[in-house]
């Protein structure tokens, strides 16, 4: 599903440049539940941005769903994101003046689906995350856990190939963290490829494979106990 070969990425800082990713090789198959671990500055966010087509890599090859990602203009990137990727962010990133239902339906708007149909599909996904009764609420009327579940519903609504979660539990307490992770596990069990970035050991333990990054290189890539238990 995701294949990365000898990936390099630097950011210019004044005259110098900061070499963030120093040759990453990573292969994630369809249906995997992978977490990227690393302290801040290890390059994990950069990696997610590149995988999420939110940023461009300098060197190496990146294949998404078998397609080589190269010389992508913004429009093509937007279409690919809409088609293949679902995002879950640490700070939820819901649009404040839209209801939960409208937030979930938004990716379908960019897909070109008509309003009636997309609200129906969005409602199905809200139901799936257990928030059907909260459909007409604005984000500020929801708890953190609820917001994140709305965001997960939004990430799933286009039926993407990969769900990318950037510190999905970073802003949540322990109980809600567990419920959000359970939700991600359920999604994975249904066959969805899930790619989580986290610095929390407990969160990573609940995925099936942990890739550890340090200073821009992969230092370990191991299946978790949860995976071995299967």
């Amino acid at each position: 599903m995701i294949r990365i070969e000898k990936l390099h990425k630097s950011y210019p800082i004044g005259k110098d440049s900061l070499h963030v990713l120093k040759g990453i090789d990573l292969h994630i198959k369809e249906g995997e539940f992978v977490s990227i671990m690393g302290s801040s500055g290890s390059g994990k966010s950069t990696l997610l941005n590149i995988v999420g087509l939110l940023d461009i890599h300098d060197e190496g090859d990146y294949y998404l769903n078998g397609q080589l990602i190269k010389d992508l203009n913004e429009k093509k990137a937007a279409i690919l994101r809409n088609k293949f990727l679902g995002f879950v962010f640490q700070s939820f990133n819901l649009i404040s003046y839209k209801t939960a239902l409208e937030n979930v339906a938004l990716p379908l708007y960019y897909k070109g689906m008509n309003r009636k149909e997309r609200l129906k599909v969005a409602m199905d996904y809200l139901d799936k995350v257990g928030l059907k009764d909260w459909a007409s609420h604005l984000p500020n009327e929801l708890s953190g856990g609820q917001k994140q579940r709305v965001a997960i519903a939004r990430a799933l609504v286009t039926n993407p190939k990969v769900v990318l979660a950037d510190e999905p539990t970073g802003a949540l307490d322990t109980t809600t963290t567990d419920s959000v992770m359970d939700l991600l596990k359920d999604i994975n069990d249904e066959g969805m490829t899930v790619f989580v970035i986290t610095h929390e050991e407990e969160v990573a333990e609940q995925t099936k494979r942990i890739v550890r990054l340090r200073d821009g290189i992969i230092i370990s890539d191991t299946p978790t106990k949860a995976a071995k238990a299967l």
Binding site: G52, L54, E74, K75, A78, I79, R81, N82, K83, F87, N93, L94, I95, L106, P107, Y110, K111, R154, T158
Partner: peptide, 16 residues
């Protein structure tokens, strides 16, 4: 800005 960023992440093209 943030709203546009979200929209773009969800698949809004610059043109839209």
């Amino acid at each position: 800005t943030k709203e546009f960023g979200i929209r773009k992440a969800l698949g809004a093209t610059p043109g839209s």
